[in-house]
Computed example of a mutant assay.
Amino acid sequence: MEEIRIRTHRRGEMLDITDRVREIVSRLGMDEGVVVLQSLHTTAALTINENADPAVVHDLLGKLERLVPKDEAFYRHDEGNSDSHLKTSFFGPSLTVIVSGGQPVLGTWQGIWFCEFDGPRERRVAVQLLRA
C-alpha cells in the first residue's frame, strides 16, 4: 500500500490527484489491474469528474453548499461539521480505477479528485494496486 499526503487550504475544495495516482502506478510498474483509492477521513471524499474546466469544480462546490449548508437547526454533532460528514457520504470515501497499458483508464476530460469538506487539514489517501 502507498499513501498520498495532501495539504488542503480551504474548508471546501477539490484537488486533482490524477498525476499523483499515475506516478504511483508507473513507479510500481503495474501494467494491468485496478488501483483502489480510499480517503482515510470521515469529512473528505473522492470522485472522478472533469479536470479540464475549473468552472466545474466551482459549480460542484457551490451546489453542494446550497444542498447541504454548514448550519442547520437539526444538526446534533457537536463539532460543527455535520455538513462535511453528509457531503462525504454523498460522494463516498473510495474509488476503484481500471489500469491498462500502465495507465489509469480515464475518459478524455476525467480526473481523480480529492474532495475536502472540513479543511484546512493534512489528509491522507490510501492507494492499493491489484494486478490482473
Rank of each mutant, 00 (worst) to 15 (best):
A126N: 01
G33D: 00
L86E: 04
F90I: 15
T43M: 06
L130N: 08
S26R: 12
Q128D: 13
D71G: 01
W113N: 07
N81L: 08
L95K: 01
D16Q: 06
S82M: 15
I98E: 15
R10M: 04
D71V: 15
L106V: 04
Q110T: 10
T108R: 03
R131T: 11
M1Y: 10
E3V: 06
I98N: 09
E79F: 07
G101N: 14
V35W: 06
I4G: 06
E122N: 14
D19Y: 00
F90A: 10
K87Q: 05
M30S: 05
H77A: 12
F114P: 11
L130W: 02
F114V: 13
P69T: 09
F91E: 00
V56F: 11
K70Y: 07
V25L: 01
E79S: 15
G29V: 03
L37A: 10
H41Y: 08
Q38C: 11
V25P: 03
E3G: 00
G111P: 06
I48S: 01
A44E: 01
R66K: 14
T43L: 05
A132H: 08
G12L: 11
D78F: 13
R131L: 03
D16F: 10
P69Y: 02
G33K: 04
C115F: 08
S100I: 02
E2N: 15
T42R: 13
R123L: 09
L60V: 15
F91I: 04
H77D: 13
L130G: 05
E3A: 02
D53W: 02
R66S: 11
A73G: 12
M1Q: 06
L106P: 11
L60Q: 11
K87Y: 10
N81S: 12
R123S: 08
E122C: 06
E122Q: 13
E3K: 13
A73M: 10
V97I: 15
T108P: 11
G111Q: 04
R123G: 09
S82A: 15
R11M: 12
D83N: 08
E79Y: 09
I6M: 13
A45N: 08
V25N: 06
P104E: 01
H85K: 06
S89N: 10
V34G: 00
Q38G: 03
V34Q: 03
I17Y: 00
T108D: 14
I6G: 13
R27M: 02
E122L: 13
D78M: 05
V34Y: 10
H9N: 08
D19S: 14
A132W: 00
I4T: 04
L61E: 09
A44Y: 07
D53F: 03
